[in-house]
Amino acid sequence: MRLTLADVAVARGGVPVLSGVSFALNPGEAMILRGPNGAGKTTLLRTVAGLQPALSGSIDGATDAVAYAGHADGLKAMLSVAENLSFWARVYGRSDIAGGLDAYALGPLRDRLAGTLSAGQKRRAGLARLLVTGRPIWILDEPTVSLDSHAVTLFAAAVRAHLAQGGMALLATHIDLGLDARVCDISSWASLPDDLLGASDEAFL
């Protein structure tokens, strides 16, 4: 099991943002994507997660292996934390949510409605979803937004434990998590203007 990107180009709203993206992740490895706002971090992560097609190039090893956490947490306000996590666990064919609750210290909050949680608590519940899915490749887009320093430590520990079990992680983040991970500045893959030709991702144009 290995995640490989070969010469991938991605576009957002019909405008190519990155091209020639090539890297590989082996089990136990993490990679942190850096880059200024609008550099294409989210677009690249969504492409790897399979939410949008790549303009060109190939992505191997991601199908049915990724758990994606974007800017939104995927929590329902009128369901409790435990109900939210159980739902996602069952969607991924699992039932155990204890690991997710423990890793993010959500035990005291398990019966609270997600709508009554603070932003940071919601984020923790959203990140706990990755643990209950049991997927090997985590794709995280700004995972530490609205987390306090203690929760960031919990998150870093959860990622480290995931890597130790042979998992992989691809993160876009600006803060230093203390992970033993490759850091990659994606601006080196920025598309040149002449890539624009014939690069529309709009299906109906």
Binding site: A49, D64, A67, A72, G74, K76, V91
Partner: peptide, 14 residues
């Protein structure tokens, strides 16, 4: 769509 559930459903095994 607003709370990101559809993104996750689209990457889920279902």
């Amino acid at each position: 769509f607003e709370d990101g559930t559809l993104d996750v459903l689209a990457t889920a095994p279902l």
